[in-house]
Amino acid sequence: MNKVVNNVEEALKGIEDNMTLMVGGFGLCGIPENSIAQLVKMGKKNLTCISNNAGVDDFGLGLLLQNKQVKKMISSYVGENDEFERQMLSGELEVDLIPQGSLAERCRAGGAGIPAFFTPAGYGTEVAEGKEVRVYNGKPHILETALTADFAIVKAWKGDTEGNLIYKATARNFNPMMATAGKITVAEVEELVEAGELNPNDIHTPGIYVQRIFKGEKFEKRIEQRTVQSKK
């Protein structure tokens, strides 16, 4: 089944105000940057964004925040973004902070048809407020529910016309789980090849999860913390 769309405009067609979007990436690593730029252009408002981080002030999801398009963020860590912190502390932005492993598992559960699960993460903290607690193996766990989205937007290294995806290094992060949890999943890839050119043994995300795939026009791949050692 051919999943290829011509460009980012076509890929994100149908995103409207008030929708819930999952956006892959960890920090600025493995984010769908072409799609984020298009979301800014589209200017849809009151979006709920599920993403581990909120980008930085002038890149990643930070661009949507600057443009006041986001009503609510569901994330685990938002420390690199001053505008985020300002909007959150002033109450303009609703924020649901979730332990990172619970966020990943909630996306995975959403895609896997598991409505909820128990985890020890967050027990005894404000994350547990209002959640059912059960003791398993002598240890308290809290009930976390699955997450799904109207659109899941992910970034992969290579993809084929069938929507099969391969990620590179730690740019994989949240992308595979989010790809499974969107009503419509859009994959933005660096390299788009014909079906058959990727080895089926190497596929991380099978094409069944992907409705639309396109080759990103350009990737800046900004580095958040450039740490190096000098050659001796």
Binding site: W157, T170, V228, Q229, K231
Partner: peptide
């Protein structure tokens, strides 16, 4: 990594290359 060999796709949880 050595200078010039940083890979934006390869970071740790502190977002360091």
């Amino acid at each position: 990594p050595f200078e010039g060999e940083e890979d934006a796709d390869l970071i740790n949880a502190g977002k360091q290359t």
